[in-house]
Write a protein that binds this DNA or RNA. Structure first.
Length: 264
DNA sequence: CAGATCACCTGCTTGC
DNA sequence: TGCAAGCAGGTGATCT
């Protein structure tokens, strides 16, 4: 579900509620979301103070007065402030003011604690909104892969997912199967700009709510209204009118305009 | 290294 | 109507 813009909005709505709060107790019930010893995890969090809440890629990273906590929302994860617990609530944080719930029907999300360094966060590539173009181009040239699978790889760039990769490639006029290493400097420049543009715009619209994405306050985003290819199979391309096509690339539904998006 | 396949889970939609 | 198949915003293991 949540990609960079959605996670960014979760963090923005979460941080004011959590920063400086103390965790009185916590409990976890899913062996998938919280693999390993769940009671031990809860004890690590008990009596800790939340120093900061930031986003890194698709991770929500909380720095505590002792240790760090990473939350990845997977496909259907939600962090809700003062929400109501339901059958898919797999984590509860009792705070000195209020409650934080972790909800996740599919349980693809993960909650991980570390005393020092969060390995999965440390392994992430650069932030797409922070990397410089020359650095981006250099990384692109190193990898002989199709562009869509590369952009989905979190070690290449951190935070892009299926929606925003399709949307950025459309805006750049690049076919999802185009060779990354062989993109001209000019086309790589268009891609770099398209990625920045679509992510920034989506953040301003508070993310895309396709089915059930909500921020920490339970509010939906509306960027889905502005999608140009994702979810628009068979509908006319906003640029040329030919029908948007849907195929499978990297095992993911892939939406594109065969006329506007070129392989080279 | 690149790419395909499968797996992890639940729920909603589609098609026969 | 009913039910099985297919699909979903993600990631990681394994095999060729």
């Amino acid at each position: 579900m949540p990609e960079l813009p959605e996670v960014e909005n979760v963090v923005r709505t979460l941080a004011p509620h959590l920063t400086g709060r103390r965790i009185l107790s916590a409990s976890f019930t899913s062996r998938f979301v919280t693999p390993g010893d769940r009671r031990k995890l809860a004890s690590h969090l008990t009596e800790r103070t939340i120093v900061s809440v930031v986003r890194r890629g698709k991770f929500i990273v909380m720095t505590l007065d002792r240790g760090m906590l990473a939350v990845h929302l997977g496909m259907t994860g939600k962090l809700l402030v003062d929400g109501t617990a339901g059958e898919h609530t797999h984590g509860v944080f009792h705070l000195d003011h209020g409650t934080l719930l972790y909800d996740d029907p599919r349980q693809f999300g993960r909650i991980e604690w570390s005393a020092t360094k969060l390995a999965r966060v440390a392994a992430l590539g650069p932030e797409p909104l922070e990397i410089e173009f020359e650095d981006f181009l250099e990384r692109l040239r190193k990898r002989k892969m199709q562009i869509k699978p590369l952009l989905l790889n979190q070690k290449f760039l951190a935070g892009m997912g299926n929606i925003y990769v399709d949307e950025a490639l459309f805006r750049a006029g690049i076919h999802p199967l185009a060779s990354a290493a062989r993109l001209s400097r000019a086309r790589a420049g268009r891609l770099y700009q398209a990625i920045r543009e679509v992510l920034q715009l989506a953040i301003e619209h508070r993310g895309s709510s396709i089915s059930d994405y909500v921020d920490a306050n339970g509010d939906r985003g509306d960027f889905q209204v502005h999608h140009r290819v994702y979810g628009r199979e068979g509908k006319p391309c906003v640029e040329c009118g030919s029908p948007i096509r849907k195929t499978v690339v990297a095992q993911r539904g892939t939406h594109f305009c065969a006329k506007c998006q070129k392989k080279s």
